[in-house]
Every structure is written in structure tokens, then in C-alpha cells.
Nucleic acid binder design. Structure first.
Length: 996
RNA sequence: GCUCGAGUGGCGGAAUUGGUAGACGCGCUGGAUUCAAAAUCCAGUUCUUUCGGGAGUGUGGGUUCGAUUCCCACCUCGAGUACCA
């Protein structure tokens, strides 16, 4: 009986689905284990072989854990709100919900073919109202919360209101807006309701504010910092400009420190932790306030080096700083205004790209040094960023390279405050081992002590205070898009009002057009039925808006990261219609034990999700404050692109003359040159083609060439050709890199008449490893692989490719290895055409093979070293084949070992072995060390650390006996050539090394 | 620039605490089987060699009886980040 992967896989995929084999139970005596994949965005292109890599790994682990007796939760779903569906809608008018549904169906079909053990009964879609109802609900919780620094957690806004009513806000220690004005309880109680709401908005964890945002005109929307790469949009690469807009924001900055601290409690990859640490950007220092000479103003700066305060020789303000328009000497005003105007024109991107050019302008005004009382110049310079710290710096040119460069450029004094340090060439930024000098009370101190003392003095004299600053900015939460979660918000007297949770979800309205409105409102501005009737608690027509009972609804939608910031909790109780998830389910599953996904989410999804988790934990909704204990980033599978080499040449004057005579342009056929010839240098190619170059060039000329044309000398063309590599679709190329020439001609209209210069009768393509992408025609579809080799082969091969976390190229030719392994495995259980296993006792050797395999595979899975266990299986099957083993006692446990990797074939063999329950329920074989005990060892005999030969010796021998046996060996004597060894190292059971 | 990570045959990669470098697979070479092909099986495949052996894990040094593994310097590639005061 042949191994028929198509039948077997179809059969078991159906069985698993019908029997609900992988449905997880929220009640179980078994210990729980939660394995999660980052859910996909269902794009129209479908899956390529790179996508399932992480899913295969997590599936192996999930199946392994089931064998190990765990109650495993292994769900899957779709992150189905997003820009591509919306852009498709703009182009075609097709409703994004429709497109999304079609794409999801395609994804599901593709995923099912690979045989994953997902519990589909828990599927979530971020774009379904049943799901985003709870995303909206979380938004309301955030709105109704504030961050209490005293308790260091988020609390209900009611507790803040209560405090305001009894004590005002002066004693409140909150993370809130910076420009909060103090008030007493009495004042609070006399404020109008609108005024109170305005104040509360400054404290809420999600709040409206006029913020400078990254506006992308091409996409018509605001982008978060992590959606911008190198100053242009991540999607599409469109330019991004700064713009002020009223937007919802999330006060993630409240959690900066806890997001940092939490990293120490979770097992995530170090590079990912590093990039989150970087992104949060904690820096410890001090706030210092400088008086401005002759003005009633203070300049506040943040510095990490208060120890260098006596090195301050000037100050620099960002051009956007609020004081720049006020503190300008009259004779400098024109110059300053010109400078500000010039910098405003430059986009953020230009400023970032052009770090070298130093520019700035002196305001003509001076600040007073807080300690020395000396006057220091106040400059404006665009190397100071408005968005970090206070948008102003105290410049210490001797200790900071940027200040140094600025001072040098403008001829500002550079006082040296370091002992025995030369600053004639560059600033001295080193902290450790440097002693401060010329600094009054700080002189003679080292960095750490000087910082402490400086802060102490600042605080004592009321000039400043110690402070920790974070780079992490509050996250803008509004998007001017259609295909996202609507906010559960309406506006009354210009103030946002939350819709009561019991009326959720607020579903996306229908719109005519998915574009922004003509007056620049977001797409929801096109909706006719988008007003909130607060009396009847429903969405009604805009015509009814009276601003008394019926109000306009929010027009923005939520960003992509909203739905993905909590979905892992929803899986725990995915079909709960009355709650976010039941308390029992949340307490049972708690957190994700293993999370697998790409590293590109390091500072987006993974940071926001941790933020929401901590918030929901604070508010008592979740039992833990980190959502994923362990995380693994799978590496990317790269494509192997195929290249054809097109010969292009400039028409010679002769040809041009000819064109004139026949009154038309001469059609030139595309000519492609096979790889070997294309790799030659131009000179070599000339030589190679010498005898028949004319024939080749002539081949490229169109058929309608006249006899006259055929007779012309085209030798000049010979010198002007060049080769252009062009991507060819990898499906047109076989595993031997040979191009299917006819298929290639039909691939593109323009290649219909192409000519090919072959090598050894075939056209060979060039290969190069690149990211898998449609535009590079190097995408390999998993469906085809499943069809041809089977899902089990695909799963094994993806694992066999290399370490999970590493990027590695895909080469379809390699799959034959794992496929023939499966055929060999199948054969072990068969005698010719019939299934046959023996109940006889296994031999020592057979048991040794089995237990060695159990040990290695178990270790490998625990270490996520899936590639090496595939080789272990191959070794085991090769050994059992040569042992001619068909013993049930060996083959039954072997099927279980293989089943996480190749579940279909394992399940089939398991059934043939007479089992009625799914192999998924079988216990993992137990390793017994006794089967691996050896009596002798093939010792490597090394001379000066280099192995020269091997020698079989009993493990019972003493060191002396071993040495005697080795020294008397003839090869030892040959190696030594009469010399006496200086030393003989014997590590019993390991190695023997002779030195001399 | 800064911070990580990685360099091993023609290719993907293995060597888990320093102990036989190149497991396993692809590819390639030769052979068997076949009318032929596919499939399958067998043998070989780091380089070099005077067939004794010798060299060899990016380069140079170091520690060690012994280094792909640890330390120092450098080179190359990849990823992230970028005027963060």
C-alpha cells in the first residue's frame, strides 16, 4: 500500500473537524497551556509558504503539550480591520466587509489544508460587531479612568471626582496633561458642567487634545510613530507632515515605567526587549529652570547631566518653542522670524535626513545661570526637538557633541569643566572616570556624586528638581478611516460623551464613499445615519440632530492596534455575549503561555497590548498584568527569485538609416541569454558570441525586415549591448533552474516573440535570495506544496529549513528529502502492500534507537529546536529500516513522537495500529535511560588536540588501563615517531589526548 | 553614529556544560534496477596530497592538554534605532 498523502490528509482534516478533536475546555483537571499565534490580517493575496512557519511551530508545541497531558488552548482568528480592504473599497466601491469575508474564506481554506490543531469554535474577527463591541467597551473603561501616581495604578474616574469635590486638585498626584491649573473643592463645585468635563478630560486615560500629529496627505489619515518608517508612511511610502488636529490619545506614558519593569518578568527575546526599552527611552536627570534676563519668563530644560551645569555657555530653544516669539531682542526680530519660517518649511524628514548642516540664530536675549548668575546667550536651533523634554536645552559644549558643533560653528565660548581632558577637537561625553573641574561646589567630584549634589542644590535653592523623562509619547488613537472600530462617543456642547455600555456595539454606518468628505472630514462624515438619539438610545439620521437629545457621533475610527491589543483575552471565552470574557475563564487561562509571531510588532502591537493588559489588570478586569509569559519571534522565510537576462542594445546608425528607408521603427524582439553566458563579462561575452553574434542580434529583429535589411552590416550593434536582469515567475522554473521557455513566452504579452540563447540546450535562470513578494514573482503557494507533497511534508520541511528564529531561504527542491522520509516511515509499518506490525519483543538495538529518539525529540521540542528533531526522525527511521524493525512496541511510540510534526500520517498509522481514539490524546512516550547504557566507547585518540584515529575501548577500564592500551597501539607509535609524550589526558567516556 | 545579532562544504544547516567539526537533508558524481523515464536502492562527495598524511569553522592574536564554542582587536553581512539633551 502506497503512502497516499492526499487521501490521508483529506480524511483526517475532515475527522478532526467533525469530532472537534481540538476543542479546548474551560473546565479541566489537567493543567492548562495556552499557545497563541499572532493572528493574521487576511490580505487578498492569500498565504505564501512564509506565513505558516510560526503557525506550524506553535501547532507542534500545542500538540506536544496535549501528548504531555495538558489542557491546551490553541485558537486562531483574524485581525480584519485594516487599510488594504479600505483602499480596495475606494478603488472598486466594494464594501470592505465583503472583501474581508472573501479573504477570510480563502485564508481558512488554506490554513485547513495544513492540518492545524486550532480550536475554531473560538475564532475572533476584530471587524465583527460582536467582537468590537468589547473593543468599544474597553475604550469606555479607559475614558472612565485616571492614573493615580500615589497608588501607581489606574483608578475609576469617580474617585478623582470625589477628591475634587472635597479637596480640589492640589493634592492629586496624577499622570495628566501638563498645563493643569490648580483649583479648590469650592471652585470645582462652582465650575459649570462643561468646565468640569474639560478638566476631567485632562486626567482621563484616553482624552481629546489638539496634538501635533503625523498627517499623511496621500492616505488622508494620521499615522502613529510606529507606522512611519524613515519619515514616510510604512504603507505606500507616502510623505508625512506635522499637523495640529483634535484627536483621541491614549495616556500610555502613564505606564512607561511599568512597561519597562514588566520586561524583567517575561521570557521574551532580548532584541525585542531591547527595542521596547529603547522605544520607551527612560532617561534620568533633572529639570532646571533658567531666568531670562530682562523678561518675566523662565526657560525650563531637562538634562541628564546636571553635573555639567557649570559648563553651560548658551541655551538653545527649538524653533517651535512657545517662548521664541516673546524673548527676542528688537534688532534680532527679523532674523529670528526668518529663521523660524525657514525651519517650519522643512519637513521633519528633511530635518532628520540632514543632520550635518548646523543652523541657528541668536535671539539677542540672555538667560541667567542659576548657580553662577552669569549671562548666557539664548539661541534658536533646529537640532533641538520640540517634542522631547521641554523643547529647550542647556548647552554644555564641552560635554555634548551637538552643543560642541553648534558652539564651534557660531563661535560661542566652550568652557572646559573636566580635569585633564582635551576638548580642542571634540566634546568629552564620557562619564565614568572623569573628574569635574571649574565648577564651584561640584569641582573635584566624579559623575555620580556630582549629579546627586547638583540635584540636591537645585532642589534646595528651588531652581529645579530630579526627574525621569521618557521618550515614549502618548499614542494618538484617532484615524480618519472608514474600516475601523467606531468610537462609542457623541458630542454635546463640544464635549465628548460616552454611550452607555449596554447600548454597544455602535456599528459602522453605511457610506456612499469611503474617502474623506470634500470639507476634509473623515469618511464617516459621508454617513447619513450617524447621530445619537440619547433618549431612545439608538443611532438615527443626521437630519434629526438638535443638540438637545440627538447629537452628532464621532467621525474618527480607532487605529489598527485597538482590536489586536486584547484579542488573546477574548479567545478565553470567545462567544460570551454578555461579558468581555467570564471571570472564571479569565482566571482559568490567565495568560498566554507561548506566543509566536514576527518581530516587526516589537514597538507597535506588543507594546500597546501590554499597556491595555496592565490597564485592565489595574481595573480588576484581568487577573495578570502581562499577557504573554513567553514569546518567540519566528524568522522570515525568504524567497529564491529567478532571473532571466535580457539583452538590450542601442540601434546602430545603420539600423536608424534603415528605419528611415522603410518608414517605421524596426521592431526588436526581446532576447534572453542563459545564466552562464550572462555571467560572463562584456568582453568574454563578445568573445563567446563572436562567431554568431550577428545571428543573435538578427534574431531580435522583427520578421518584417526586408531582404535589404537582412543584408546590412549590423556589427556596430555588437558593441552597444547590455544585460538587464528581470524577475521571472518562479513557477516557470523547475528545480534544476531551467526555464520553461514556452510558458515564459505566454506569461507576458511582451515576451510572446522572445528569443532565447541557451546553454547546453536549456535556458538556465539566475537565482537570488530576497524577501518573498508578489512583485518579485518569487512567491510559493502552500496549496501547491500540499497538493504535490502533502501538508505533513510541508510542515516537516518548514521546520527542517533551519532554526525557528532565523531568517532562511525557501528552496522547493529540498522538500523531496522530507517527503521520502515520510515514505520510508510509512514503509516501516508495511510489508509490501499490506499493513503489518509484529508483536514480538524488540531487540536491544531497536529499543536503543527508540529511546535515543524520544530523548532527543523531547529536548528539541522543549528548546524550540524543531529543525534538529526532524533530522532525529530521519536517523531513527534510517536505523529502524536497516534493523528491519516492524515491532509494535517500537512503531507505536514512534507514531506518537512524529505526530506533532506530521499529524496526518501519524493519525493514519495510529488507526491502523488498532487505536480508536485520536492520536492527539495519546501520552508522549517515556524515555528510559537504561536502554542507552553502553559497555564500550569508540574513543577518539587525539594528538595535541587533533583527532588522528579512533579506538574501541571498554568503559570499565581505569585511566591507567586506557593509557596502556592507547600507548601500545601501533598508530600511536607512528604518530609519536619515537618521541615520548609529555602528558596524556584521559577523560573517561569522552576523549583521550596525547600531548608531545 | 549607537544598540543588538550573525559569519562553518556548492546550498540549508548540525555540533545543548570547551572534548571525534561538517549530523540530517538538498545538490552533484558513479553504479544497480528499467526498453526508457519516474520512483527506488547502493557507493562517494570540506579542501589538499607524493595516498604516509597535511590543512581547515570571516581575519589576527590570546587562554587551555584541547576552542566553531571563552577573551581581545579587526573585517564583512543582517536587524533595530537615530539630533532623546
Amino acid at each position: 500500500m502506497q503512502y497516499n498523502h492526499i487521501e490521508i490528509e483529506k480524511k483526517w482534516q475532515k475527522e478532526w473537524s467533525q469530532r472537534q478533536t481540538f476543542k479546548a475546555d474551560n473546565n479541566s483537571d489537567k493543567p492548562k497551556y495556552y499557545v497563541l499565534d499572532m493572528f493574521p490580517y487576511p490580505s487578498g493575496a492569500g498565504l505564501h509558504v512564509g506565513h505558516p512557519l510560526g503557525y506550524i511551530a506553535s501547532d507542534i508545541y500545542a500538540r506536544y503539550k496535549r501528548h504531555k497531558g495538558f489542557n491546551v488552548l490553541h485558537p486562531q482568528g483574524y485581525d480584519s480591520f485594516g487599510l488594504p480592504a479600505e483602499q480596495y473599497a475606494i478603488q472598486t466601491g466594494q464594501h470592505p466587509a465583503k472583501t474581508t469575508e472573501v479573504n477570510i474564506a480563502t485564508y481558512r481554506k488554506q490554513l485547513d489544508k495544513i492540518g492545524f490543531s486550532f480550536d475554531w469554535s473560538r475564532e475572533v474577527r476584530t471587524s465583527s460587531p460582536e467582537y468590537y463591541k468589547w473593543t468599544q467597551w474597553i475604550f469606555i473603561q479607559l475614558f472612565n479612568s485616571w492614573y493615580n501616581k500615589d497608588t501607581d495604578k489606574a483608578e475609576a474616574i469617580d474617585s478623582l471626582i470625589a477628591t475634587f469635590e472635597t479637596a480640589g486638585n492640589t493634592e492629586v498626584n496624577a499622570v495628566a496633561d501638563e498645563d493643569i491649573v490648580g483649583f479648590s473643592a469650592q471652585e470645582w463645585n462652582q465650575f459649570s458642567s462643561t468646565k468640569q468635563q474639560e478638566i476631567l478630560l485632562q486626567y482621563r486615560l484616553t482624552f481629546l487634545s489638539d496634538t501635533e500629529v503625523n498627517w499623511c496627505p496621500a492616505l488622508g489619515t494620521v499615522l502613529a510613530n510606529d507606522e512611519i518608517v524613515n519619515g514616510v508612511s510604512e504603507r505606500g511610502g507616502h510623505p508625512v507632515v506635522r499637523k495640529k488636529m483634535t484627536q483621541w490619545s491614549m495616556r500610555i506614558s502613564a505606564y512607561a515605567q511599568r512597561l519597562l519593569d514588566g520586561l524583567n518578568t517575561i521570557d521574551w527575546p532580548q532584541p525585542l526587549k531591547d527595542s521596547q526599552t529603547n522605544w520607551i527611552g527612560r532617561s534620568q536627570g533633572a529639570m532646571v529652570s533658567f531666568d531670562v534676563d530682562g523678561y518675566d519668563a523662565k526657560i525650563e530644560v531637562f538634562t541628564t547631566r546636571p553635573d555639567t551645569i557649570f559648563g553651560v555657555s548658551f541655551m538653545t530653544l527649538a524653533p517651535e518653542h512657545e517662548l521664541v516669539s516673546q524673548i527676542v531682542a528688537e534688532d534680532k526680530r527679523a532674523e529670528v522670524e526668518a529663521y523660524i519660517e525657514a525651519t517650519a518649511k522643512r519637513s521633519e524628514r528633511d530635518r532628520m535626513a540632514d543632520v550635518k548642516t548646523i543652523s541657528g540664530v541668536f535671539t539677542g536675549v540672555y538667560a541667567i545661570h542659576p548657580f553662577s548668575g552669569e549671562k548666557v546667550q539664548i539661541w534658536i536651533g533646529d537640532y533641538v526637538l520640540a517634542s522631547y523634554g521641554t523643547g529647550a536645552v542647556m548647552a554644555v559644549p564641552c560635554g555634548d557633541q551637538r552643543d560642541y558643533d553648534f558652539a564651534k560653528h557660531f563661535g560661542i565660548e566652550i568652557p572646559n569643566i573636566f580635569e585633564n581632558v582635551d576638548i580642542s577637537e571634540a566634546a568629552h561625553a564620557d562619564k565614568e572616570g572623569t573628574v569635574i573641574a571649574n565648577s564651584d561646589f561640584l569641582s573635584g567630584l566624579k559623575y555620580k556624586k556630582a549629579v546627586k549634589l547638583a540635584i540636591y542644590e537645585l532642589e534646595k535653592r528651588g531652581l529645579g528638581y530630579g526627574k525621569i523623562n521618557y521618550r515614549l509619547r502618548d499614542a494618538v488613537f484617532s484615524r480618519q478611516r472608514y474600516w475601523g472600530e467606531p468610537f462609542p462617543v457623541y458630542y454635546k456642547d463640544g464635549m465628548p460623551q460616552m454611550i452607555e455600555a449596554k447600548h454597544l456595539p455602535i456599528e459602522l454606518p453605511e457610506v456612499e464613499k469611503y474617502l474623506p468628505t470634500e470639507d476634509g472630514k473623515p469618511p464617516l462624515g459621508n454617513a447619513d445615519v450617524w447621530a445619537w438619539d440619547s433618549e431612545n438610545a439608538k443611532v438615527v439620521s443626521n437630519n434629526l440632530i438638535n443638540n438637545e437629545t440627538i447629537f452628532p457621533l464621532e467621525l474618527n475610527t480607532m487605529p489598527g492596534w485597538a482590536g489586536s491589543s486584547w484579542y488573546f483575552n477574548r479567545y478565553m471565552d470567545a462567544n460570551n455575549a454578555t461579558e468581555f470574557a467570564s471571570k472564571e475563564a479569565l482566571d482559568y487561562w490567565k495568560e498566554v503561555d507561548l506566543y509566536i509571531g514576527g518581530s516587526e510588532h516589537a514597538t507597535g502591537h506588543l507594546l500597546y497590548a501590554r499597556f491595555w493588559q496592565k490597564f485592565l489588570f489595574d481595573r480588576g478586569i484581568l487577573p495578570v498584568d502581562e499577557f504573554a509569559k513567553k514569546l518567540i519571534n519566528q524568522g522570515m522565510i525568504l524567497g529564491t527569485s529567478a532571473f532571466v537576462y535580457r539583452l538590450e542594445y542601442e540601434p546602430s546608425t545603420k539600423i536608424l538609416d534603415l528605419e528611415r528607408t522603410i518608414e517605421g521603427s524596426i521592431q526588436v524582439k526581446p532576447i534572453f541569454i542563459s545564466k552562464k553566458l550572462a555571467n560572463l563579462s562584456v568582453e568574454e561575452l563578445k568573445e563567446e558570441l563572436d562567431s554568431n553574434y550577428e545571428k543573435i542580434i538578427r534574431k531580435g529583429l522583427s520578421e518584417f525586415l526586408t531582404d535589404e535589411a537582412n543584408s546590412i552590416d549590423i556589427s556596430e550593434m555588437y558593441y552597444t549591448f547590455r544585460l538587464t536582469p528581470i524577475h521571472a515567475d518562479v513557477s516557470l522554473v523547475n528545480t534544476a533552474d531551467e526555464l520553461d521557455v514556452e510558458a515564459f513566452k505566454n506569461w507576458r504579452e511582451e515576451y510572446k516573440n522572445a528569443e532565447f540563447i541557451l546553454e547546453e540546450g536549456v535556458y538556465k535562470v539566475g537565482r537570488e535570495v530576497e524577501k518573498m513578494s508578489k512583485s518579485k514573482y518569487n512567491v510559493v503557494n502552500p496549496d501547491q506544496i500540499c497538493e504535490e507533497y502533502g501538508a505533513d511534508s510541508l510542515r516537516l520541511f518548514e521546520m527542517f529549513l533551519g532554526p525557528l528564529e532565523q531568517a532562511k531561504p525557501w528552496k522547493t527542491s529540498g522538500i523531496s528529502g522530507v517527503h521520502s522520509f515520510l515514505k520510508k516511515l510509512w514503509k516501516l509499518y508495511h510489508n509490501g502492500e499490506t499493513f503489518e506490525v509484529s508483536d514480538a519483543d524488540p531487540t536491544k538495538e531497536e529499543l536503543k534507537t527508540l529511546h535515543k529518539t524520544i530523548k532527543k525529540v523531547e529536548e528539541d521540542i522543549e528548546n524550540f529546536s524543531f529543525n534538529t528533531s526532524v533530522s532525529t526522525f530521519m536517523i531513527a527511521v534510517n536505523e529502524l529500516t536497516s534493523q528491519k524493525c516492524n515491532k509494535r512496541a517500537i512503531l507505536e511510540p514512534l507514531a506518537v513522537l512524529v505526530s506533532p510534526y506530521a499529524p496526518h500520517i501519524a493519525e493514519e498509522l495510529w488507526e491502523k495500529l488498532g487505536n480508536t481514539e485520536s492520536i492527539a490524546t495519546a501520552a508522549f512516550p517515556v524515555f528510559e535511560a537504561s536502554h542507552l547504557v553502553e559497555s564500550s566507547k569508540e574513543y577518539p585518540i587525539s594528538f595535541n588536540g587533533k583527532r588522528r584515529f579512533n579506538m574501541e575501548l571498554s568503559l570499565d577500564l581505569s585511566k591507567e588501563e586506557i593509557e596502556k592500551a592507547v600507548m601500545s597501539h601501533e598508530k600511536t607509535q607512528a604518530q609519536l615517531q619515537g618521541r615520548t609524550p609529555k602528558k596524556v589526558i584521559i577523560v573517561p567516556g569522552k576523549i583521550i589526548n596525547i600531548v608531545g
